[in-house]
Design a binder for these strands. Structure first.
Lengths: 235, 235
DNA sequence: GTCCCTTTGTGAACCGGTGCACAAAGTGAT
DNA sequence: ATCACTTTGTGCACCGGTTCACAAAGGGAC
């Protein structure tokens, strides 16, 4: 039996798997709190809302951490997933843009819970600079590069207006940041090697609207909608 | 019952395409504002941050709305995509949970811009019920079913604490809602036919952390991390 | 040890989506 | 009308990811 390297994982975890690991982690934490010692792939899959075969394959990418006939040790699996995701270290994040959304993010408990720490809040508006939000002083955007350096920020969250996002992105990237979570409704162009993830509230709603429309269309039998322009439309 | 429309679109638009249509729409709106009359698939693809072949295939699912040698008529395409997404009608949405996030969502301009209208805000906390936010009165969660009926709400946004989300979801579904946008960090279980979309802020951060860790690992050459448990870990 | 039961880990088929590359279709010039 | 040029729409090969289904592995009883 030839065991490759230490485990079956030669550092090539599929993107789809990575996206689900936080889900498993959350389910496992709930089980840990309820005192469960072990869990089967079936039970964990149900808790995470996925297919059990998929869960097993996902976990197999991390290594062979289960015991046949028994299941997975909850605490051990929490540790392994946390380590894989990099949550055993402390990540300092900066939030740029302290509007309604920025404030919500700053106060959002879910960040702090697992390895993330809001280390800085920045804004361009002099009216909010100096405000104290979630225990932090809002600093002026001019301080961006200095703050990133000083606080060891490695992930930046953009909650600015759309018009400012690209400009801020350019600056944080120039300052050495390579991971950005973007809430502004724009397509950012960034150099190779920089990871951008995008959360777009209105796009999610539009997707829902599409499906909702189809459902109601089907119920009213109104399959035949106008294909052409309506009579009067202002161009 | 043979349903088939005039064009090549027999009502089977791939999910991946649907998810990109809002992106195209946003890019097209920008072009419309700048006065562009037509746009090539190449230019639109760049603006939306996708491959041009993919864009053409996506649009071909809606119908044959381009002109070879010329491109697409901006206004016409805006209209067609809007109609396909169901944005030519007005969608009343209710936001349940008026914490930091709920407030941010209520004030978020991006919703109103395209077919969506925040028609109700609800919360369980008597301290916030009655508050006026974004021009709306916050109503008590007891009124949920009545408000949904009275205002013609068809999409519900959940911005409640995790513990309350499933319960609220059950109620809105019982009230006839079939489209839910969930911001609470829980896996909701819902009956067949109900569409759930989930936005999870901390999961996005965890995915970024994973990639960030790999980048820094690679730079420091630290490929050999401990596979086993650390010496002292509290179970 | 042997038998039976449970559950993992994975080979292999399948499926949706991507992107290349090109024929078809249109424009404009001459 | 013809030619040169542009750009769409799509056939096809490819790829990552999902799911099925089962052999392999472990536990527990006797």
């Amino acid at each position: 039996m030839i065991r490759r390297l230490s485990q079956a994982r030669e550092r090539g975890i599929p993107e789809a798997t990575v996206a689900r690991l936080p889900l498993y982690l959350r389910a496992l934490n709930g089980m840990s709190e309820r005192g469960l010692a072990t869990v089967s792939s079936e039970d964990l899959a149900v808790a995470a809302g996925v297919n059990s075969a998929k869960l097993r394959k996902d976990l197999s990418h991390l290594g062979s951490y289960g015991t046949r006939g028994v299941g997975y040790d909850v605490e051990y699996l929490i540790y392994q997933i946390s380590r894989e995701l990099g949550l055993t270290q402390d990540w300092a994040i900066a939030i740029v843009g302290v509007g309604n959304l920025g404030r919500a993010l700053a106060n959002y408990g879910g960040f702090v819970s697992r390895g993330f720490r809001v280390a800085a809040l920045l804004d361009a508006d002099p009216a909010v600079v100096g405000d104290r939000i979630a225990g932090l002083n809002v600093e002026h955007i001019d301080e961006l590069e200095a703050v990133i350096r000083r606080r060891g920020v490695s992930i930046v969250v953009l909650a600015t207006p759309a018009a400012a996002a690209q400009q801020v992105a350019d600056r944080v990237i120039a300052a050495g940041i390579t991971s950005i979570l973007n809430f502004a409704p724009v397509v950012l162009s960034v150099p190779e090697g920089v990871d951008i993830r995008k959360v777009d509230l209105s796009i999610e709603l539009q997707i829902l609207a599409f499906h909702e429309q189809r459902k109601t269309d089907r119920m009213t039998g109104g399959a035949a909608m106008a294909e052409e322009w309506p009579e009067a439309v202002d161009l």
